[in-house]
């Protein structure tokens, strides 16, 4: 039995799908069985980010209406063992799927995988509820912007009311230069409001765009910058103790102070 983790945000465009692609790949590269599920029905793009678009034949919609089995709808990633994708239909919209249907699929996938990562659409409507329906854990992604943090807070409240209580935070697109100038919220500001466990801080990384366009998650090619952060997040998901670096202007990083990492009960010291 694996773990079903929903990756969600509230605000759109903060980097959920990029996280799912990279963290899913990282887990698979560490010999875990992983299926990533695109729950952003109508606006699928996880397959694009992962470079699997041309190989999608069936989608979760086909599984729901019976035109495909679940097994057949999974697209295998050829670059890494044990990584599969369940794509979303582009012809349908979020209300064409019921939370129970999504839940059933994810629970089946859970039996055969170590990890099922569900890429949630932005927003707080049915698409989000579908994505969260089978999850027992959530990764909430936010950028260090007041509006994104506000929406993340909203989503955390909704996750808690769906009885999901293991919720970890990913802060994406931290720009050390802007933090140093005082123009950007830093991790501590964000945690002060959200007060959930921080599982990773991903820096703004210009290489992300190219990797997305090539359909090759950055993690295949790099161990630094954003890719390094995704690696560490995957290790923390696995329960390893990996310190969260503080990104400094000069590129070097030091460890966060204990005050901040103390929030993950004893995980990092």
């Amino acid at each position: 039995m694996g773990r079903v983790i929903v990756i969600t945000s509230g605000k759109g465009g903060v980097g959920k799908s990029t996280c799912v692609a990279n963290i899913g790949t990282a887990l698979a590269l560490s010999n875990k069985k992983v299926t990533v599920v695109d729950a952003d029905i109508g606006l699928r793009n996880l397959d694009v980010i992962m470079g699997l678009e041309s190989r999608v034949v069936y989608t979760s919609m086909d599984v729901i209406d019976g035109s495909s089995t679940l097994e057949r709808a999974l697209v295998k990633d050829r670059r890494v063992e044990n990584l599969k994708l369940l794509a979303a239909s582009q012809r349908n919209n979020k209300n064409d799927v019921e939370p129970e249907q999504m839940r059933d699929m994810c629970l089946k996938l859970k039996e055969e995988n170590d990890y099922v990562l569900v890429d949630s659409p932005a927003g707080i409507e049915q698409g989000f509820r579908n994505a969260a329906s089978a999850a027992e854990e959530a990764l909430v992604v936010t950028t260090p912007e007041v509006s994104a943090v506000r929406d993340a807070d909203r989503i955390i409240g909704l996750l808690q009311s769906e009885e999901i209580h293991k919720i970890d935070l990913i802060i994406n697109r931290i720009n050390p230069k802007l933090v140093a100038k005082g123009d950007m919220l830093d991790s501590e500001d964000v945690l002060d409001i959200l007060s959930i466990d921080l599982i990773g801080v991903v820096p703004e990384d210009p290489n992300i765009v190219g990797s997305t366009n090539r359909g090759q998650p950055l993690i295949f090619d790099s161990k630094t910058g954003a890719a390094g952060a995704y690696w560490r997040i995957s290790e923390r998901i696995e329960g390893k103790e990996v310190p969260i670096p503080e990104f400094k202007v000069d590129g070097a990083f030091t460890r966060f102070w204990g005050k901040l990492i103390g929030r993950r009960d004893g995980e990092i010291n």
């Binding site: 506000r150 807070d153 909203r154 808690q160 409001i193 007060s195």
Partner: peptide
């Protein structure tokens, strides 16, 4: 904690929140 979008109303007395009342 009361998070963004959450509203608590009690019109028969006092409210005690054991947690934060976040923006929103």
């Amino acid at each position: 904690t009361l998070r963004s979008g959450q509203v608590e109303r009690f019109l028969e007395g006092n409210i005690i929140v054991i947690g934060d009342v976040n923006p929103g």
